[in-house]
């Protein structure tokens, strides 16, 4: 019942609630299957576009910029260490389905040797200390806990069930002007 009418059972009905709930079951596409299998082996893979050289991780199976297909022959393993190139701090609004209550950061990473990741979780660092240029490394879930249940065709990130997040390495920050400008 809409809150507005809960008070007076004789007042006109002016609102209507409808809880839309739909579930989808989709087969993981082949490139994402390979990506997920690699995560289980604690490997992070991507596809390198043969034309422009951009690296996509997770792989898409094509480069959307050059519109050329990519496959296993374009696969490469990415390093598990990199630099924060951008970040956002989220203050959770308690809308339906929001499970977070504390402020948290989501970061974009430039990996050493090439490749970028977006919307990654940062560990072992207070939210207010997150900054561009911060050096980080992957923190894998333990062998017992690691799974790829959260990896779907719609994945933006990796899924905390495989890589829990990224922690500071303690190395000096990379100056902002040394970071590529085309990552977000």
């Amino acid at each position: 019942m809409a809150e507005s009418q809960a008070a007076d059972l004789n007042a006109p009905v002016v609102g209507m609630d409808y809880h839309m709930h739909v579930q989808y079951h989709e087969v993981l596409c082949p490139v994402m299957r390979e990506f997920a299998d690699a995560l289980m082996d604690k490997r992070l893979i991507g596809h390198k576009c043969p034309q422009c050289g951009l690296i996509y991780s997770p792989p898409k199976g094509y480069c959307p910029i050059c519109v050329v297909p990519t496959d296993k022959s374009h696969e490469l393993e990415l390093q598990q260490r990199g630099t924060v190139t951008n970040y956002t701090i989220v203050t959770p609004v308690q809308y339906h389905g929001q499970e977070e209550t504390d402020r948290f950061a989501k970061a974009s990473l430039q990996l050493d040797g090439g490749g970028t990741l977006s919307l990654q979780d940062l560990l072992e660092i207070p939210v207010d200390d997150v900054r561009i240029g911060l050096r980080v490394e992957a923190v894998w879930a333990s062998d017992a806990e690691r799974n790829v249940d959260e990896v779907t065709n719609r994945s933006w990130g990796i899924g905390e069930s495989a890589i829990r997040g990224w922690q500071p390495t303690g190395e000096p920050d990379v100056p902002a002007d040394e970071l590529p400008t085309n990552v977000f």
Partner: peptide, 10 residues
């Protein structure tokens, strides 16, 4: 590998 995805809007 079948993945599950839910959308839920009140």
């Amino acid at each position: 590998r079948l993945t599950t995805h839910t959308i839920d809007f009140p």
